[in-house]
């Protein structure tokens, strides 16, 4: 399953709930305002790093760039992807769940 998160974890609990209920080997994509969760050194970084031990976590590059967040400063090991890869990810996973 591919989990889509589009809200900042500093504003909503979508990422929290998703990480509570995502099964091992599931994938998570941070996009729109959720990309702020990717910043290294943030209050969310540790939680994200822990999640990455059992989940594949991706972040949408165009949304990072739009918000002026440089790729060099995101949590190590996060994969930055574009829309083409976003589409490919939805194909690779049988189900997509949006945490609205």
């Amino acid at each position: 399953m591919l989990h889509l998160i589009n809200k900042s974890p500093f504003e909503r609990n979508a990422l929290d709930s998703c990480l509570r209920l995502a099964q091992d080997s599931h994938a998570v994509l941070l996009f729109e305002d959720a990309v702020v969760a990717a910043m290294d050194g943030s209050a969310q970084a540790e939680c994200l790093q822990e999640a990455m031990n059992r989940l594949s976590v991706y972040v949408l590059g165009p949304d990072l760039e739009a918000r002026g967040l440089p790729k060099e400063r995101i949590v190590e090991g996060l994969e930055v992807i574009d829309y083409d890869r976003f589409v490919a990810l939805t194909c690779e996973h049988d189900t997509t769940q949006s945490w609205l």
């Binding site: 729109e32 829309y83 976003f86 589409v87």
Partner: peptide
């Protein structure tokens, strides 16, 4: 941003 994201996604899907 929902409609914008959906549009970008749709374009990428069609292009693929």
């Amino acid at each position: 941003q929902a409609s914008d994201s959906a549009y970008q996604f749709a374009r990428a899907a069609l292009a693929a």
